[in-house]
Write a protein that binds this DNA or RNA. Structure first.
Lengths: 174, 174
DNA sequence: CGCAGCAGGTTCAGTAATCAAACTGTCGAG
DNA sequence: CTCGACAGTTTGATTACTGAACCTGCTGCG
């Protein structure tokens, strides 16, 4: 499968990954949330090569995750700012940072702490259920087909997934 | 910067991205949470080439995100299961799926709905502050150096970041 | 026994993406 | 008129990914 074919898959994750599923893109987005906005600043902070940075920024602009806003004329220069679509990536970025803090930090602790202005405390992000507010645990959730469910691929062991075929076979054999 | 150098960066996000920051890896992990466990099943569902799948699974095992568990002897065969470290990627996966649902779904709606067994309802994941329980909004948070803060890179406009140098210059000029 | 089939990979040649470094173009300051 | 800042683009060499085929270890069938 080619990368651009990913965006046509009937799977929200595949479509999201076709936009943000790239190491450089994720690091660029982290910097966006740290209020980095200019080409040279991204380049110096990330150590990314200039052609790659240009291509990733272009893609994010094409996808409406970032907008180019002029911050001066003569010479006309633009900075990159998060749109609402981009700002809504915050949970993804925070979830990744938090996982890195827990599992990839060295002995000295975390390089960066996050403070919540509302309560004034340093926080960790916690993912909860929108309906009951309880923290989400993978074992306490399951999935079922939604309105746009068509393909059997990317459904969890749907009736014609390989796993299900195997299970059906195994049951038939017993 | 090379990919493997990423893991040495003093930044939790960079280190996490060195493990999971790859389109295929993210899709493999999604399937893990859908209880896909075998090489052939991953291969068929994802349409990934076999060498890449083998290399990604190996990397995830090396990083203790997955473990190989034998499910039969003669012939000895293994399946891939999430470790606790892998299970803790759930918020990342859910956040990506949710963003995809909101911004990348087609008119028909979502391909997949998630049900929370505790409350019995279909839910969206919401990221809240561990201290006060309020939903996290990027504008209501800020960062400051933690115990392991060393390099100025990857700090938000630290005193010797390019952005800060520019701001200092601009203030001095006024 | 001989051979097909399955699960889980590996090997190989060709194509695509990424790298470092240099180059372009516009402008303001000295 | 030269210098430096900014925001990229171009170039040639290196690295990663792709698709197809191949390999291994075992089982079940005739």
């Amino acid at each position: 499968m080619r990368w651009n074919e990913l965006s046509e898959e009937n799977c929200s994750m595949a479509r999201a990954v076709s936009v943000i599923g790239d190491r450089w893109t994720l690091l660029i987005l982290r910097d966006c949330f740290l209020r980095v906005r200019r080409f040279e600043d991204f380049q110096e902070r990330l150590g990314i090569t200039r052609p790659i940075l240009a291509s990733r920024l272009k893609k994010l602009v094409d996808e409406f995750v970032l907008v180019k806003v002029p911050y001066q004329k003569r010479p006309l220069r633009y900075e990159y700012r998060l749109t609402q679509k981009g700002l809504d990536l915050y949970p993804i970025v925070m979830a990744i940072v938090h996982w890195g803090d827990v599992y990839m930090a060295d002995k000295k602790g975390r390089p960066l702490l996050h403070t919540h202005d509302l309560c004034g405390k340093d926080f960790d992000p916690v993912m909860v259920c929108s309906e009951c507010g309880e923290p989400l645990v993978p074992r306490q959730t399951h999935v079922h087909p939604g309105p746009a469910a068509t393909s059997s691929r990317h459904l969890p062991l749907g009736m014609d997934s390989p796993g299900a075929r195997r299970i059906v076979k195994e049951k038939a054999a017993s």
